[in-house]
Amino acid sequence: MTDDSKTSHPAGSDEGVHPAAKPFLWLDHPVTKAAPFWIFGIAALSLLVVEAFNPLHAVSKWDDVFGFYEIEGFVGFCLAVLAGWPLRRLLGRPENYYDQEGDHD
C-alpha cells in the first residue's frame, strides 16, 4: 500500500517540495499562521453588524434570537472540541487494545 518512493526530510525543510506547492510556502510563515484568528474574528464580528442593521427573517423561534447562528457556531464548536478532553480520558485506549496475536507479523 505504501509508496516506496517516499522520503523523509527535516520538518520544515523545503527540499523535495512539489513545484506546484512552491508558490504557497508562505503558508508556513508564523505571520500567516497567526492571521486567521484576526481575519475570522473580524469577519464574524462584521456579519453581526450586518445582522444588526438588516435582521434575518426567522424560520424558527430560535433563530429569532439576535446572533443565533454565530452563537451556535462559536459555542457549538467550542463545546464539541472541549468535550474532547474528558472524552479522550474516558474512551481513549492504546492503539493495540484490540490487537490479537500475529496481527503485526
Partner: peptide, 21 residues
C-alpha cells in the same frame, strides 16, 4: 440574504472558535 448571511455567520464563528482554541 437570510440564508447566505446566516450560514456564513455560523461558519465564520466556528472558524474563529477553531483559531481561538
Amino acid at each position: 440574504f437570510d440564508h447566505v448571511v446566516g450560514q456564513m455567520q455560523l461558519l465564520l464563528a466556528a472558524l474563529f472558535a477553531f483559531t481561538f482554541l
